[in-house]
Amino acid sequence: MAVSVKDVARAAGVSVGTVSNVLNRPEKVSPATVERVHAAIAELGFVRNDAARQLRAGRSRTVGLVVLDSANPFFAEVARGAEERAAEHGVTVLLGSSGQDAARENAYLDLFREQRVNGVLLTPLALDDARTEKLETAGVPIVLVDAEADGELPSVAVDDVEGGYLAVQHLLAQGRRRILFAGGPASVRQVADRLEGARRALAEVPEASLEVASTEELTVLAGRLVGEELAKRDAAGRPDGVFCANDLLAVGVLQGAGILGSLRVPEDLALIGYDDIDFAQATVVPLSSIRQPAREIGAAAVDALFSLLEDPDAAPQRIRFRPELVVRASTGG
């Protein structure tokens, strides 16, 4: 049977209220009494029911974080940054991965509301007016991570339009004129923004062309399928530069086209990814990429959440980091 506060009070010869003060407001109790209560706690093996305490207080010492794919090293770094900063605030992070599935995302949001978390950090699958309104009225403070909305939700993101522009501008500067963009689904805001940036760069070079290869997922396997398809084309019918919406796709394209296929990277196919995950520089041909400060994004999101908790009426913070081009061997740089 679990040891209760009453058992501790009985063993220490004090009231239940005194035990509560020792646990929550020790400065109100004499040092001798605090020592006696802690001795009883140690002897009985008492463990406080933190869940019950949080229920009475109406809030917990946790923050929810929902990302698109926890297996993606970029989101793993975001989570690490959030955890490190949350620890400084005395809270822990509960991590959920939506797997780019709207129903699973909603399930996590419902769970976190039931758990009375301090707030939620969310990388949404998609955002429209109805969805944004639902989040704003959910009763739990929400900060968007690696995403932005037109409403009143605070956000921490990277300028993905600029990132897409930098990636394709670099391919064009390398003399590539037949560009392929690989990414999807298109409903993911980051994918759409990176494609928009690519189109802007292409518009500056009239003789260049853009082909879009839509993928169902942002994974290595999805990229490998794209690479294998490109390897089957003749030289005149394939692109000479590929921009992938993230590094996992780029790794897959490298595998499908350059390892399982017969194409040489970068001689036949210049290849650039997005995120600059640690593995990008360790591939057979080190990958050029667009770097996002993942850990800083996670930390800034926690800071934005606690600013919102401290002053709910303050204007929502909109923090936007700038992307950085990292050139490696896959683009011939």
Rank of each mutant, 00 (worst) to 15 (best):
R10K: 14
V161Y: 06
V47I: 15
V67H: 01
G163V: 04
L171I: 09
L127F: 10
R233F: 01
V220H: 09
P286W: 00
Q255I: 13
R194H: 08
C244G: 09
T33I: 15
L249W: 10
E217V: 00
A138H: 13
V66D: 09
P316N: 08
L325D: 12
S262L: 01
S4C: 08
V302W: 10
L248R: 14
R194E: 00
A157V: 14
L44K: 08
E229L: 02
V242T: 07
V66A: 07
L202W: 01
L68W: 02
P239T: 08
V5Y: 00
V191Q: 04
D193F: 01
S97L: 03
G258N: 06
R177D: 07
G183H: 11
I319E: 10
D234A: 09
E228I: 00
D193S: 11
L171Q: 06
A39L: 06
L68Y: 08
L23M: 12
A213I: 03
A192T: 10
A51G: 14
V8R: 03
E88L: 14
R10P: 03
G45M: 08
R224V: 06
L263A: 07
L225N: 11
V212I: 15
G227A: 08
A86C: 04
P26T: 13
L308I: 00
R53K: 13
V168A: 07
G81V: 07
A198P: 06
E136Y: 11
V117M: 03
V93N: 04
L210A: 09
R113K: 14
E296V: 02
L153I: 10
S155I: 10
Q190G: 15
P26N: 11
L68A: 14
R264C: 05
L65R: 05
A149L: 10
A11K: 13
R176T: 10
A231Y: 09
T219Q: 01
D146Y: 05
G227F: 00
R295Y: 05
V205I: 05
V47K: 15
V5H: 00
C244H: 11
S187K: 15
Q174L: 06
A52K: 10
F306S: 03
S98R: 07
T137I: 00
G151V: 12
D276H: 11
G256R: 02
F279D: 05
G175L: 10
S4P: 01
S4M: 06
I272G: 06
V145T: 13
A231N: 08
E105R: 00
V19K: 05
A157D: 15
L202K: 03
A257H: 03
P206L: 00
L308P: 03
L260Q: 13
I41K: 01
L305I: 08
D101K: 02
P73Q: 01
E196P: 00
V143Y: 12
R291V: 02
T215W: 09
A208L: 08
G163W: 01
G298C: 05
E216W: 02
